[in-house]
């Protein structure tokens, strides 16, 4: 349980209704303390400290620095200005190239995450529950794990050639270890008292697995899936750059060969944005599957 929850049950029956004003007072106090000359915080100070506004401000500063750097370098092929990139992006969106390639990459990612999860989660449960299985499989896992997925691309080119299989293979490989190791950790770290509690209620071994160990390990498995996504999204571009006839990575390589830097940059922007929204979607899935894990270190 989180320390916040611990503090709550020492208090009156409905502490949540009481806590908001306290928190608000603390925030106000912080503002006053930050305010110039001890004056009351102005509307502008309040507005400037909102999270969304901070994000926009950081973003604007980033664009400005980029622009200055682009002016200083003054070689559009090497570093196009944000405006050129924005125009290129607009053109690519209008032509349907962004949605087409993004859809291909996201589909590959989704399929490979599902395959990796289907392979890694049962294996992780087996290794987490059975010491013997872990002793046999773990050495192989530890040997393969440090080898980056990208290192397999040359070999995969020999085996699969350029096509749809190669990026899937690389992504499954990358995602597999993240999910596997987190699943093992999740199963190992299941609170033994929950298992003991179930057993003293006359719950059998299979029911303990199904109704205690699986739900108890699920938050950690979900963390593994999110880490797998991050690793796979980083690897997909490399895999498509070399080994695929389509996708965001392929598009970058295509426009690089044509020396169309603004379009290369435009696709980089797309990679960032799609990755961000995919992570938001995974977080939403996590909240939906494991709402009780909110407020713990796993949320």
């Amino acid at each position: 349980m989180s320390s916040a929850a611990e503090r709550q049950h020492a208090g009156p029956p409905q502490p949540s209704s009481l806590q908001t004003p306290v928190l608000q007072r603390e925030l106000d106090a912080t503002h006053t303390w930050q305010g110039p000359g001890g004056a009351k915080p102005s509307q502008i100070t309040r507005w400037m400290s909102k999270r969304g506004v901070i994000a926009i401000r950081s973003f604007v500063i980033f664009i400005a620095l980029w622009w200055l750097l682009a002016l200083w370098v003054n070689r559009p092929v090497q570093l196009p200005s944000p405006l050129r990139v924005a125009i290129a992006l607009g053109g690519l969106i209008a032509a349907g190239e962004v949605s087409e390639n993004a859809l291909i990459s996201v589909s590959r990612l989704g399929i490979s995450l599902v395959i990796a999860a289907v392979l890694a989660i049962p294996l992780g449960f087996l290794m987490g529950l059975r010491r013997e299985a872990e002793a046999i499989i773990d050495p192989v896992v530890e040997l393969l794990r440090p080898i980056s997925g990208i290192a397999w691309i040359p070999l995969a080119l020999f085996i699969f050639g350029v096509g749809d299989i190669l990026p899937l293979f690389i992504l499954v490989y990358v995602a597999f270890f993240q999910i596997l190791l987190n699943t093992i950790a999740g199963v190992r770290n299941v609170d033994q008292r929950l298992i003991a509690a179930a057993r003293t209620m006359g719950v059998g071994r299979w029911a303990v697995l199904r109704y205690v160990i699986i739900p108890a390990a699920l938050p950690t498995v979900m963390v593994g899936i999110r880490l797998a996504f991050a690793a796979a999204w980083a690897a997909i571009i490399a895999a498509e750059l070399i080994g695929a006839p389509s996708g965001l990575g392929f598009a970058i390589e295509w426009y690089r060969e044509l020396l169309m830097s603004p379009k290369v940059f435009a696709f980089l922007v797309v990679i960032g944005i799609v990755g961000y929204f995919a992570d938001l979607a995974l977080r939403a899935l996590q909240r939906w599957l494991t709402p009780w894990a909110q407020g713990t270190e796993l949320a």
Binding site: T200, M201, G202, V212, A216, A293
Partner: peptide, 16 residues
Amino acid sequence: GADRGVMFQDYALFPW
């Protein structure tokens, strides 16, 4: 066995 019920110190409630 269910004939001997245990109440644990930190309750061991299922959080989900």
